[in-house]
Design a protein around this nucleic acid. Structure first.
Lengths: 222, 222, 222, 222
DNA sequence: GATGAATGAGGGTTCATTCAT
DNA sequence: AATGAATGAACCCTCATTCAT
């Protein structure tokens, strides 16, 4: 399943973590295509060959980091579970706020997670991107279906379509809104984690609520 | 204003167009950072030095292509003007449909236009991206403001926020939805323009209407 | 004799002078090998081919500039002739001060003159350098011979040797001393002529006198 | 301290020396700006990338060669120490003769050492040049100060000034004199080491003595 | 007489990957 | 298991010079 070799997984913990930290830093601050294995080993002061003992190639390393990022985000969500009694709107709010909180807390990991969604000619990266999109989409459709069943959402909509739009709002739209509100480029967060404090949760909740109102009520005047 | 040298602009039309076609092909199919001047000249069978007679550097060439792409899209819109009497919803629909029609017609150009929005370490590219985002955002806010004035949209919303969300829906969301409905990866359109026919305008309008209903009415059951 | 074509010499004066100014600027601020014909024509906005209509090649242009520099320096000296009654020491002082004054007045021309003395693999440049050295050396030997004849300088010295040493003092040594005294890099003079004012003639004469005392009296304590 | 990578320093001696020899040859026969990494690897028949495993860049390689040159000269001087009881004049003579002997013995190394003093637009080279000049100047001033203290040199002189002039005599002036006496261009020595034999030490000492007499006694007739 | 497009070799530099040790 | 030297293709870019117009 994992793309890391047994060699890597059996490494002494500190060595392994130092390696991960350096690779994380590199892929957080450069798109996949321009991230450099050479820079990673230079930073670490280890042999270049080691990377290829730990991972099949550059892409394998990247894949591994992305899987770690996903794993970390999942763990975070599990540790901050939403109240199962919550309605659709509150549940979405809780999830999104939780996700953003994590991104502010571990901006480098969040950034690497997003790298998997960027454009590239590398076909394996495109495939990865497709898979990630699919997972997210399926999850959203699931949530919407439940909400329809509970009567919270009207039943006359094509949920596949809705999921696409809702998904984009909570990724692209939210990011854009946050950037505009705070003046902080999210891509700079990874380089300077302190910026995260600027984006207090208050700010964050206000923006999320804006999205939710829009989604639930629509723009039309009554 | 333009980033192409007089040398380039005075080139015989066929030569100039052959060059543009090759450069377009390259930047449509690779992100800026990995697009290659070397490949372009190899494809054309011309000397590498020529590129630098035509443009200051790789970025200048890219900038020029992006400006051409924008120009072409503008021209298209001007040739398919929306009825000025249209209300907000119909006007948005007309615009979006028109934009997507163009993208299907000239997928390579559309792709290059989008390249300007991609992530990169190249600072000039980031600046370009920022500018483009700003322009689009301002335009959306303007349209929303007018709609509020005409009473088509309720007045209790933070239009800056709304613009971010609406914007993301009509870029990311729409793309995602279209891809899912048609099974056609938009990134493949540039490589094989024939795929565009698969996405009939009918299809397209259906998806846009889905977005508009969502935006105007919201998800909440009445 | 000259290395400029008739074409160039018959050019309208303003055009010719504009060309010279641009070429001067280029060769004053870059060593011969790295000076660029491309930059010159770019600065001027003229056709590259013109340069090769005016001069055989890059070296021809350089040679011409050097000859102009020499010519200008000669003219300056002729306009500030030393009193023929002056003894050796005063005559040298007058000459050196006059030469440096010129260099401060026309630093770009002075710089180009010195370019001919720099190292390069270009064989024609080496030859030029040799010629210039020879001229200067012969002149110095001449002056020394006269001084010996007049009894101002003792007759037991190998004047060829002395000329080498005196020559180096009034080129390298003087430059070094001036730089140290004033803090002004002479190579920066060409870029920013205003610096010249820092090096008032007073300063200059003091340094020259230092050299002359040394040359005439020697270091030895009596 | 050193600018060579561990990779380079751990290379098998023969390989390392072959590399140094080729780089030395290149930088001895071309000024920094026109020296070519490409030529070096072509000569050696190794991959271009290797150079950049060994050194950060072209300048790093150059810097390393210059430091080796300095080191070699220092070692030579240490192996031919001047009698500490010597007076100023004899000490200078010994030093200069020793330095020139080395230059004749290892002309390529001497040439590379001098390359650091040449003009260039490369700012790092200018800085290097400045540093070297400063070191030499300080050393000369020191020697002069001691000589004054010992009463060998008169005390009414500005030693800073004197150092500039004396310095130039023993670099530029001496070179010029030697070239004239022997007919051998010092720049050709590096290409054809055999020429060195032409310049016997006798010749050399005669020239140095010429300079010393001039410096100590001056030109003025008594 | 002036133009300026085309050339193509050359510049320094970075890269992911391999493989013998 | 770890090393790290070697590769060589690819990168963007600059150059002096030519020659048809």
């Amino acid at each position: 399943m994992t793309t890391a070799s047994a060699t890597f997984l059996n490494l002494p913990a500190d060595k392994r973590e130092r390696f991960i930290a350096a690779a994380l830093e590199e892929f957080a601050s450069h798109p996949y295509d321009t991230a450099s294995v050479t820079r990673i080993v230079a930073e670490l002061g280890i042999a270049k060959g080691s990377v290829y003992q730990y991972f099949k190639n550059k892409f394998g390393l990247f894949e591994y980091l992305v899987s770690l990022a996903t794993e970390r985000e999942m763990e975070w969500h599990e540790q901050h579970p939403a109240d199962p009694g919550l309605g659709f709107q509150d549940r979405v709010r809780a999830m999104v706020v939780s996700g953003l909180s994590w991104a502010l807390l571990e901006p480098r990991w969040a950034r690497v997670g997003l790298r998997a969604m960027e454009q590239s000619k590398e076909p394996r990266l495109q495939a990865l991107r497709k898979m990630q999109l699919e997972t997210g989409h399926a999850y959203t459709v699931g949530m919407l279906t439940e909400a329809v069943a509970r009567g919270e959402i009207r039943g006359d909509l094509d949920l596949e379509l809705v999921a696409s739009f809702v998904g984009s709002m909570f990724t692209g739209g939210l990011m854009d809104a946050l950037t505009r509100q705070s003046g902080v480029e999210l891509s700079d967060l990874a380089d300077d984690p302190d910026l995260g404090r600027t984006l207090s949760e208050l700010h964050l909740e206000r923006v999320v609520d804006g999205a939710l109102v829009l989604i639930m009520q629509g723009l039309a005047s009554r």
